[in-house]
Design a protein around this nucleic acid. Structure first.
Lengths: 218, 218
DNA sequence: CTTGGAGCATACTACCGGGTATGTTGTCAA
DNA sequence: TTGACAACATACCCGGTAGTATGCTCCAAG
């Protein structure tokens, strides 16, 4: 991992992304603890050596999968941040894009999910604890993006709920839900994903009390 | 496990329920795979021997936790089944009770959740596979109860969604969500739980498109 | 052309945890 | 009183897995 030039960093990332994807698939299918490093290696058609050359431990590998998943999320909603006046319109766009990202990068998002509830405990080494807090921070700051817009929407009088904290939790949960109950078709039709995302988004927005007149174009 | 009389079955259940609760707590905190039988035993202040006297394997123990959790769910909504004319009112009641049960029996419900996504894979022994299908069936038939009422509500024209399958999934997800983001207060105030359940229920019903005029008394 | 290191593979160790075999104690019925 | 069994505890085995130590190969710089 002692790379020097930028190009070498680039190629290293490429090699690692291959590993990341295989790891995400394994972790999604069997969970973190039930997946062995050998499982990941087997999926890559290689051996442990390759993985341990790039990652110091299984926990490190998982952390990188988690981080990558969160990066995908952050990148997806980034273009929307300064592009709307109406908070409801902004929330609509963010929700839809978030849900679509969930569906398109499902293995990584399942890992993010497991990481939240699983790595919290498990209390491994002291320095991994530190990494974990950082990852948890990524997730929280992402959620706060939504929470702020939800609060703005409430101030505009177009919603009706009490606690924005709770509302944000249920809201995101509704948007995340398809990564659990949706199994991608053999024809991974992007139209199909769009349909699912639309319905989830509409449900979530209506859940906040946003009127149906705002939901025609979702 | 070779009990004979009814009373002995009763006492056996009592002893086992103690184990079930400890197991549910362990599985909730660290997940199934990360929890060892010794962990469960330690929480009970005993040793492996006690657990393996009542359960033939770790998977059997987990299955019983799962089953118990589903029994709690089924028992909670049972009184509501024939008590309503308006499907929307029935759905309201079922949703509220379901959400409250989630909150009150959180450790078991977390196990039910993990069981769904984790035991599906993992493909252990062939006969455990059989048990697993049975448990999966419990969960599905429970979900169908909701789906039917949701379909009735749609036919009454008080909702607006396309696929009742997807709607049911998101609906239940919204109601289940607090078992993940709600940490019980030291004062396990039942009023507090009621408040959470109310908000989740309102969100879920609104998500289906049910008008706010129906949600005053939730 | 050689040497150092990246990028793996191979072989091995150490340990944890599921499962078992066996011992111990209390209780209850005959 | 005794034996039989439930309800555990103790001691042990053993397979799987994280992690390591080392070997191999190719490439690029000097």
């Amino acid at each position: 991992m002692s790379v020097t030039s930028d190009s070498e960093i680039g190629t290293a990332r490429i090699h690692q992304e291959e590993i990341l994807e295989a790891a995400a698939l394994c972790f999604m299918e069997r969970g973190y603890n039930a997946s062995s490093i050998d499982d990941v290696a087997r999926r890559l058609g290689s051996t442990k050596g390759r993985i341990y050359h790039h990652y110091r431990s299984k926990a490190d590998l998982f952390a990188d999968v988690y981080r990558y998943g969160m990066e995908l999320n952050a990148a997806a909603i980034k273009p929307l941040c300064g592009a709307y006046d109406d908070p409801v319109e902004k929330l609509k766009a963010m929700a839809k894009v978030h849900c679509l990202t969930m569906l398109r990068t499902r293995p990584f998002q399942r890992c993010v999910w497991e990481g939240v509830s699983l790595l919290m405990r498990g209390a491994t080494t002291p320095e991994q604890r530190e990494t974990l807090v950082e990852l948890q921070g990524l997730r929280e700051s992402y959620a706060i993006r939504f929470r702020e817009v939800i609060e703005d929407a409430r101030e505009s009088g177009k919603t009706d709920f009490e606690s924005s904290g709770i509302a944000t939790q249920i809201f995101l949960m509704a948007l995340n839900s398809p990564i659990f109950w949706y199994s991608p078709r053999d024809t991974d039709d992007d139209e199909q994903l769009n349909e699912i995302a639309s319905r989830c988004t509409r449900f979530a927005l209506q859940g906040l009390g946003i009127g149906k007149e705002y939901l025609q174009d979702v």
